[in-house]
Amino acid sequence: MTSCHIAEEHIQKVAIFGGTHGNELTGVFLVKHWLENGAEIQRTGLEVKPFITNPRAVKKCTRYIDCDLNRIFDLENLGKKMSEDLPYEVRRAQEINHLFGPKDSEDSYDIIFDLHNTTSNMGCTLILEDSRNNFLIQMFHYIKTSLAPLPCYVYLIEHPSLKYATTRSIAKYPVGIEVGPQPQGVLRADILDQMRKMIKHALDFIHHFNEGKEFPPCAIEVYKIIEKVDYPRDENGEIAAIIHPNLQDQDWKPLHPGDPMFLTLDGKTIPLGGDCTVYPVFVNEAAYYEKKEAFAKTTKLTLNAKSIRCCLH
């Protein structure tokens, strides 16, 4: 018999989150649709729960009410004593943790798909938090293969000092899905179709896995975050240069030392320094102006996964 890495157990509980950011409308629209008619997301033997994560922000069509829901799922915020004085999103995070967690427990949901849009030209993107997770690498390989020839990129946010504390991190297997470009507060049919297909293929993978299909060893190309880059700023902290036209919409493309990065209003080009080629992502993302992030630098690498098969009882 072929030796293989056996994944822990079959997958039982899956959640699909929309509206973690209330103005990213593809996930909101799909989740609302699936709450009314969820036939397309159901798979035999699998509990799939669509869920609106930040209903107040969705109602106002804004990213958040008090603070970013997708950055506060750490033990400090989840452990705060519940009171009306807490920011709305912290209270909501505790409610979500109660419903789908608790985080880092045996009772937490197996998989959470968190649906997002970006204003950046990132196409279909899967966000991975753990480079050693054979199950998710296999799932992402399946999704990428199923979507081809449509490109699907994998963004690895594993980093020693950049801690995200994402909404989906309460699950055993957290999956971020990011599709763009799409303006905030807008629905685009092409973007919706791409996100819908990503979810379909992900659920198909889980179904095949649960039925005992063995997935042979595989490898995927990923883009691992190195650092986030702020806009150049003046002495008052105001933005002093904008994304250069040569960099705009060039997510995932190589940016070499000396290539144009920013452009000042008086026409001066600010190039990339250093001696390493990087791959920019979230270029000129609207939501990241407040976070002082013009783009993120990534490096390209390959992740390998062992063969996996479900432990059938």
Rank of each mutant, 00 (worst) to 15 (best):
D104E: 12
F295I: 03
T53H: 05
L115V: 05
E9M: 13
A240G: 11
I308E: 04
G180Q: 01
P174T: 09
C218G: 00
E293H: 10
L115T: 03
D193P: 03
K200W: 08
P181Q: 03
D130E: 06
H98W: 14
D74Q: 10
N77L: 07
Q184T: 13
E89Y: 04
L255T: 05
E238D: 14
P174I: 07
P102H: 13
K300S: 05
V28E: 04
T166L: 08
L192H: 05
L187P: 11
P280Y: 02
I199E: 01
G45H: 10
V179G: 04
E214F: 13
H207I: 08
L187K: 00
V281R: 01
C311P: 14
Q94E: 10
E84M: 07
H98S: 11
H207M: 15
I41E: 02
P50N: 01
E36K: 11
D190S: 10
N37Y: 12
G267W: 05
L86N: 14
I111K: 00
T166R: 14
E178A: 12
R132W: 05
D204I: 00
C311L: 12
H33P: 01
S169A: 08
V281F: 03
A148K: 15
K59Y: 08
L35E: 08
A219E: 15
T277C: 08
T53L: 05
G273L: 10
P50K: 00
E40Y: 04
P217H: 06
N97P: 06
I127T: 13
F295E: 00
L115D: 02
L99A: 14
M82H: 13
I96W: 06
L136T: 05
E290Y: 08
R63P: 08
T53W: 05
L86Q: 13
L263Y: 11
L69R: 08
L162A: 09
N236R: 09
K49L: 14
A93V: 15
L156V: 12
D130Q: 06
C152Q: 01
L99M: 13
I127A: 06
E235C: 13
E8S: 13
H141D: 04
N70T: 11
K59S: 14
G38D: 10
I143M: 06
T302G: 03
T119Y: 01
D234H: 09
P217N: 10
C152W: 00
F113S: 02
E238K: 11
G258R: 10
K163F: 07
I191V: 11
I65Q: 13
L187A: 14
T167W: 09
R309C: 15
M261W: 01
G180N: 03
R233W: 04
P87W: 08
E129Y: 10
V58R: 06
L86H: 07
T166W: 10
T269F: 06
P181V: 02
Y109E: 02
L25E: 04
R63E: 07
P160I: 10
W34D: 01
H10T: 08
L126W: 01
E95P: 05
D74W: 09
H98K: 12
A93N: 06
E84P: 07
I11A: 05
K80G: 15
N133Q: 05
L69A: 10
A287E: 15
F73G: 10
I137D: 01
Q250L: 06
E76Q: 11
E36C: 06
T119P: 05
I226G: 11
Q194T: 13
G18C: 02
P102Q: 13
L78D: 07
P216V: 05
M139C: 04
A296E: 10
D114V: 04
D110L: 00
P232D: 02
P257T: 04
P216H: 05
N121H: 11
K144H: 05
H98F: 14
F205V: 00
V48Q: 01
D66Y: 12
S161W: 11
E36F: 15
G258L: 07
Y153L: 09
D68F: 04
L265V: 10
I72L: 14
N246W: 09
A240E: 11
L46A: 05
Q182F: 01
A171T: 07
E8H: 09
F17Y: 05
A305Q: 00
K144I: 11
G212D: 04
D230G: 11
H159C: 06
L162Q: 07
I6T: 11
K13M: 04
I177C: 05
F140L: 08
E84D: 15
L75V: 08
I41D: 01
Y142E: 00
M82N: 14
P174S: 11
H5I: 10
K292W: 07
L136S: 03
K60W: 11
P160C: 15
K200C: 14
T264G: 12
Q12S: 06
T118G: 06
K60G: 14
S307F: 05
N77F: 09
E293I: 09
Q248K: 03
P245S: 05
D66T: 12
K60R: 13
E238I: 06
E158S: 07
E106P: 11
Y88T: 09
Y288K: 15
H10F: 11
A57H: 05
F73A: 09
T166F: 14
C310F: 12
G38Q: 10
S120V: 02
C276N: 14
E227L: 00
T26R: 01
D114W: 04
E8G: 13
I157E: 08
W34C: 02
G123N: 05
K213S: 06
C61E: 15
